Computed example of a mutant assay.
Amino acid sequence: MIGITETGVYFPPRIETAKEIAARAEIPEEVIVEKFGLVQKHISDNRIHASDMAIEAARSILEKIDPLSIDVLIYFGSSYKDYMVWTCGTKIVHELGLKNAYAFEIMNVSSCFPIALKVAKDMLVSDPTIHNILLVGGCKEAELVDYQNVRSRFMFNFADGGAAALVQRGSARSRVLGSSILTDGSFHDDVRVVGGGSKHPASLESVQQRLHYLDVKDPKDMKKRLDPVSVNHFVHVVQHALEKSGHSVRDINWLIPLHTKRSMFLELLSRLELNEDRAIYLDHYGHLSALDPCIGLHVGQERRLFRKGDKIVTVSAGTGYTWAATVLEWLES
């Protein structure tokens, strides 16, 4: 049995409320709460970075398992890390004392947690010498938000924090079932940080033009192309992952999605014929890149929401655009 046995999270202490976000973005507070679906979010300072938050999220897990028993560490978090062209997974292995683990990173922006679960399961299935895989992620993408740029308004919910999950062979807590992933690369050029890459290296001009923040090339055009397909693709990967797991939409007990605007969240629930009390909506956390479903899973465990036999669907999407879902079965009473 391959499944998640432990999760961990970390959030920096500073909280930014909807009222504060509204003031910075010059948007009414009720819009932030009701449309953006955001009551508050956590913001880090310049003393802590993506790797540090990933490390802190993993520490509670390593209180329950010998660090020397971890075989693999996979970083699945934000690509906005402490440095460019740098692997934070090696730092995390060192700082956590995972002396028997090798590390690598997978990055698919916000869609990556369901994908990381599939990768971890596939590795455990294919290699009998692997027993424990630690998934870790950090996010400091609130720092990439320019509240004066109306083109990037849909990303004003970006927040900071860390999340981790231990995937083990012989799990008695949960079982990782099927996954489904769908990519539509026609959106590859819509959302990006323009400055700092090889096309637009960092310069005085790139800083003056505020090119080092998240931006949307043409919001109206992206919305025109994305709105007709996005929820359909969410539904598709959920349905397909369930089918590959031997189940259907009727079997969903819990939906754990990324944080989106409230209208999209409610539309997805409606399409899946789920009530709001069967999903975990991160309105007190915001959007932390790929970390959202891992955080939602941790929140569900803390609240003791899951029951033996529950089918839990983690689902997310990342700009570019990729939609991904992975199904879990809860095994504990």
Results as ranks from 00 to 15, higher is better:
M1N: 04
I2W: 00
G3K: 04
E6R: 10
T7P: 10
V9A: 04
Y10G: 04
P12H: 03
E20G: 08
E20V: 04
A22C: 07
E26C: 04
E26D: 15
E34C: 11
K35G: 04
F36S: 02
L38A: 05
K41F: 05
I43A: 00
S44P: 02
D45K: 11
A50L: 02
I55F: 02
A57M: 06
I61Q: 03
K64R: 15
I65S: 06
P67W: 09
L68C: 00
L68Y: 07
V72I: 15
I74N: 01
Y75W: 05
C88T: 12
L96W: 08
Y102Q: 08
A103W: 12
I106S: 02
N108A: 09
N108W: 05
S110F: 03
C112P: 00
C112W: 05
F113T: 12
F113Y: 14
K118N: 13
K121V: 09
P128C: 09
N132D: 02
I133D: 00
K140W: 02
A142Q: 07
Y147N: 03
Q148D: 15
R153G: 01
F158W: 07
F158P: 01
R169S: 12
S171E: 07
R175E: 15
L177M: 15
S179N: 12
L182S: 06
L182W: 05
G185P: 03
G195N: 08
K199F: 12
K199H: 14
S206G: 07
Y213W: 14
V216W: 08
K224I: 08
P228A: 10
V231R: 10
V235L: 06
H236I: 00
Q239P: 03
G246E: 09
D251R: 04
N253Q: 06
N253I: 05
N253F: 10
L266V: 08
L268R: 07
E273L: 11
Y281M: 08
H287T: 09
L288N: 01
A290Y: 10
C294L: 09
G300Y: 11
Q301S: 09
R303P: 09
G309L: 12
G309R: 12
I312Y: 07
T314R: 10
S316Q: 09
G318Y: 06
A325H: 04
L328N: 08
E329Q: 13
